[in-house]
Design a protein around this nucleic acid. Sequence first.
DNA 1: CGATTGAGACCGACTAGTTGGTCTGTACAA
DNA 2: TTGTACAGACCAACTAGTCGGTCTCAATCG
Lengths: 211, 211
Amino acid sequence: MSLNVSGYKRGCSLTELKEKIIETSLTLFDQHGFHGVSVNEIVKACGTSKGGFYHHFSSKDELLFVIHDYFITYVLIKAQEAISESTHPTEKMQKIIQSFVKVFDLYKPHISVFYQESIYLKPPYVEAIKKKRQMYKEIIFSVIKEGIDKGIFRSELPVEITGMSILGMVNWSYKWYKRDGGKTIDEIGDIYVDLILNALLTDKQKEAEIT
Amino acid sequence: MSLNVSGYKRGCSLTELKEKIIETSLTLFDQHGFHGVSVNEIVKACGTSKGGFYHHFSSKDELLFVIHDYFITYVLIKAQEAISESTHPTEKMQKIIQSFVKVFDLYKPHISVFYQESIYLKPPYVEAIKKKRQMYKEIIFSVIKEGIDKGIFRSELPVEITGMSILGMVNWSYKWYKRDGGKTIDEIGDIYVDLILNALLTDKQKEAEIT
DNA sequence: CGATTGAGACCGACTAGTTGGTCTGTACAA
DNA sequence: TTGTACAGACCAACTAGTCGGTCTCAATCG
């Protein structure tokens, strides 16, 4: 629940308003887009004021950055956990997908804002985010490469395009996934894993996997 | 090249400005987003005026709709052509993907605007676009269903999620594809087809396909 | 034939409203 | 007293959209 991550001790209600602003603007941005919501609307929805807002954020753009950074940092950590827990590329891939897909359930508005509004990030912020996005891609790429090197994934696969295909397939969920749809997020994750492994594994490995 | 589709005779330069406004705003929206570009900036970039703009469009929102509608209509026609040309589900899927992927090369800004800015479409317009998007999805779903019914695609695949996976994988290209990247759009399309068919086909069919 | 007319294409100053952001003031805790 | 956390009136800049006017040119008329 808490966005505080510093680990420093702090007065118990110090950033209460800051968190409320983030949570509120997140749902508002999700519904109407970054430019579809004014600072006035945010503060009204929070029951606070312009003063309150600009006490915690230097600009509306900084708020957008904070949302972006919080999300990508979280996802990055989860992916690193996923690959460090396993040794087998198949298992790594499985863990990454399943952990990422869970994020769609927990942080849907974060994701929507992340993918929809990142063009509006101003230069000082955009580089920081780009860097972390690239790190995430590299994790996927490295798993594919490892799988190919070990003869588990098909050797004719181009690493980067295959990686982007997987990312695209999973990321696109934010456009259509709804919590009250027919399938749970875990079921959807399993389907993704099934499709991806069928696309990646060599025929020999596939036989081995089934048994 | 021409957006004119009415079939009515018209003076040869009648809608020249309208097309220029569309083309110009397309690249501007692609770079800065719908709300990142003002009407003043559009008319300045076109060398025209407010009057010129509002002579052709009733509002900035209508311009956004025209861009959306032009693109989705084009894609829809291409997909219908693709499935009517073939009888075999595998071939249909292949044709759809390859024709769609070509669009990324030809209409990159259209696509970016289509996926990024559709939340800003106003109610009268948004329904019209939604309808056509749904039609496109149905085409994909029907091909998958047909493949399963004919025993060509794996029967355990859930039609809709598989369809959305394919759509996501291909659509996501708009986030990263660049014309001067390492691969041509046709090569990328072939990789997509390879991944998708490996994910969908039954083992028996795969053997048959290779020979 | 030339003159008249009128409709569509376009111009650009203008407006009413909104935007992100500032600044002074206040309540309260240490 | 001093610093933090917030309030809300205020502002300059910008926004989408309007409206009276001009120009061009084809159709009509004498």
